[in-house]
Nucleic acid binder design. Sequence first.
DNA 1: GTCTATACGTGGATAGAC
DNA 2: GTCTATCCACGTATAGAC
Lengths: 194, 194
Amino acid sequence: MARTAGSHSDITGPRVRAAALRLFARDGYAAVSMRAIAGEVGVQAGALYNYTPDKQSLLYDLMRGHMDNLLAEMPKGKGTSLDQLRDFVMFHIQFHADRPDEVFIAYMELRNLSPENFTAIEALRRRYEDHLEAILRDGMAQGVFDVADTKIATLAVIAMLTGVNTWFSAGGRLSLDEVTAQYWDMVRKAVGVL
Amino acid sequence: MARTAGSHSDITGPRVRAAALRLFARDGYAAVSMRAIAGEVGVQAGALYNYTPDKQSLLYDLMRGHMDNLLAEMPKGKGTSLDQLRDFVMFHIQFHADRPDEVFIAYMELRNLSPENFTAIEALRRRYEDHLEAILRDGMAQGVFDVADTKIATLAVIAMLTGVNTWFSAGGRLSLDEVTAQYWDMVRKAVGVL
DNA sequence: GTCTATACGTGGATAGAC
DNA sequence: GTCTATCCACGTATAGAC
């Protein structure tokens, strides 16, 4: 049946977050006004405050949700160290390619988080890195990998993989599968597997 | 002899750029006001307009100067392809480690450039990438390197190397020389050199 | 060259009617 | 739940005195 006129809580909330995501990614958090977000949704600025206590919470919720998804979906350890590394590389590229706006915000808007929110997001990012480093450490212990320092190798691999998002386009010269295969080849060699 | 009272054009100009560099890197272009820059220099906001036509030019001049330095100082082709790649890796890490603020701005504030300014900076960045790709292509032609696609390898290597700036600290566990040696080892292997 | 003063727009957030 | 109206702080940039 028809709802009370003007009652759209369940649909407007997600639309507010979607608009904030899109505009933050396109123009940057600092350059996006609450009025602009409201305009994108089709309401007045004051109405946004039914869905978020303030602009900062909007940013934090987007980044928090993104990091939670990342940690929830990352592959858990199955198979050999080499299998796990390959799964990680493939997951990372696919997950990030699927969410360019979230990824862009997660990297570019860290400095616009309040100190407490920054600490929380950093802890999640650190857990993701630790997961990859554990894979590299296991492989080292088994003599499968050969890197001088697992922490540095972790950061190097993640930086290299995340870089795909700065240039990849679905309609470009190479498909994402081809790109992924090439990155996997480079990562594999970089950690000392022929 | 004593200059006219209040005449500091030759010293204030560089101080304005230094203040803008520092504050843009710390807080982001959009979050830094002309008043804040003036406060850092020790003048009133209106006085800044003796040194820059507007805030946008301040950003562009910083990025432009950085890219010009990068291109002027990058190693020109000497020695074997492997030598040139090693020189490039070492140069990139050292150059970027020496200028964390400039590098941060050059990557984070691209979207705050006007369209014309963005095009100009992009062209310079592209020239830098092309230099590395030429090294990789030469090495491929000589059978020294083994990568599936030189353009992708170029972007992967640069992303990996630039990532150092996000975590390296001079007082940390490893010296920059140790870090550089490890990155060179990974890059060398990644492009197929045992 | 720098200052004070100001024009003028826009920001986040809130109050109260409907 | 959304609207209009508004508060008040702050933004860039300029004008004119010194």
